[in-house]
C-alpha cells in the first residue's frame, strides 16, 4: 500500500515538472498515428481494389498478364511488410538508405521517415482487410449494380466500398489502436513521441516506474478515447434504426407520419 502511495506521489511530482514534455509526446504520437492510419487505409484501399479486379478468361492477354503481375507485386508488398518488424523497417529506411547509397539518399526529416514506415505498415495490413471486406459484401450487390448498367468502378465506388468500409471499421479501429502503441518504436530513429519522452525523462532522473506508470495511463487514455470515437462513427454509418413514412397522397386513410418500431430481426441483434 505504501509503495502504491509513493508511486502516486512520484507520478504527481514527475507530471508537475515534465507535463509539457509528456504532452508534446502525446500530441506527436496521436498526430503520427492518425495520419499514418489514414494514409495506410488509402494504401490498403488501393491495394484491395486492384486486387479484386476480376480476371475473366475472355479478357485480352495483356490485360490478364498485367492484372496477375499487379496481384503478385501487391502480394510481395503485403508479405514483406507484414512479415518484418516495424523497428527494423525504420532502421533500414532511415539509417540503411544513406549507408547503401553513400549518403546520396537520406531522410532529412524524421517525421517523413516515421510517417512513411508506419503508413506502409498499416497499408500492408489494411490491404488484406480491404480485400476481405470487399469479398464479404454479398455478390448479389455487384449483380444488382451491374444490372442497372454500372461499370466496375461505379459499382465499387457507389455500392461495394461503402459497405466494405463499414464492414472493416473494426479492423480500421484495431489498426489505429495498434498504431498509437507501436509508434513507440520510432524512438529508434529519434522521433520524439510519447515513449521517447519517457526515455528522455528517465535518463535525467531515477524515477523509472513512476514515469512508466504515467506512460501506461497515457496510452490507455488515448486508446480508450479512440475506441469510443470509433464506435460512435460506426453507429453513425449504420444510420437510423427507424424511418418516417412519407404520405404522398393526402386522401389516403393513414394521415400524417409515424415512426415504425424496428423489429428485433432487422438489427440481427448485433447493435447497441
Amino acid at each position: 500500500m505504501e509503495r502504491v502511495l509513493a508511486l502516486g506521489q512520484d507520478m504527481a511530482l514527475l507530471w508537475t515538472r515534465y507535463a509539457p514534455l509528456y504532452l508534446s509526446g502525446v500530441v506527436n504520437t496521436l498526430l503520427l498515428a492518425v495520419t499514418a492510419t489514414v494514409l495506410g487505409c488509402l494504401i490498403g484501399l488501393a491495394c484491395g481494389l486492384l486486387n479484386t479486379i476480376p480476371i475473366h478468361p475472355q479478357d485480352r492477354l495483356p490485360r490478364r498478364v498485367l492484372l496477375r503481375l499487379l496481384r503478385a507485386v501487391i502480394r510481395i508488398y503485403v508479405e514483406v511488410f507484414r512479415g518484418t518488424p516495424m523497428v527494423l523497417q525504420a532502421v533500414f529506411l532511415y539509417y540503411g538508405l544513406p549507408y547503401f547509397t553513400n549518403n546520396a539518399m537520406r531522410f532529412d526529416n524524421v517525421w517523413a521517415a516515421a510517417l512513411l514506415v508506419v503508413s506502409i505498415n498499416t497499408g500492408a495490413y489494411m490491404a488484406e482487410s480491404v480485400r476481405g471486406g470487399i469479398l464479404s459484401v454479398d455478390p448479389g450487390q455487384t449483380e444488382g449494380a451491374k444490372a442497372i448498367g454500372m461499370s466496375h468502378v461505379q459499382t465499387m465506388v457507389n455500392v461495394i466500398l461503402p459497405q466494405a468500409l463499414r464492414n472493416i471499421m473494426p479492423q480500421i479501429g484495431n489498426n489505429f489502436i495498434i498504431n498509437v502503441k507501436d509508434t513507440s518504436v520510432m524512438f529508434i530513429i529519434g522521433f520524439t513521441e510519447f515513449f521517447a519522452a519517457h526515455r528522455y525523462i528517465t535518463g535525467v532522473n531515477p524515477m523509472y516506474f513512476p514515469s512508466a506508470a504515467i506512460e501506461m495511463l497515457g496510452y490507455l487514455c488515448m486508446t480508450l478515447a479512440a475506441s469510443a470515437l470509433l464506435r460512435l462513427a460506426e453507429r453513425r454509418m449504420d444510420g437510423e434504426s427507424s424511418y418516417e413514412l412519407v404520405q404522398a397522397d393526402a386522401l389516403t386513410m393513414t394521415a400524417g407520419t409515424y415512426r415504425r418500431r424496428p423489429r428485433p430481426q432487422d438489427e440481427g441483434g448485433a447493435l447497441t
Binding site: E143, G144, A147
Partner: peptide
C-alpha cells in the same frame, strides 16, 4: 446494353447502403 435491358432478381439485390 444493360441500361436498356433491366433485371429483377430472386434475392432483390437492393443496395443495402
Amino acid at each position: 446494353y444493360r441500361t436498356r435491358v433491366g433485371m429483377v432478381f430472386q434475392s432483390f439485390n437492393l443496395f443495402s447502403n
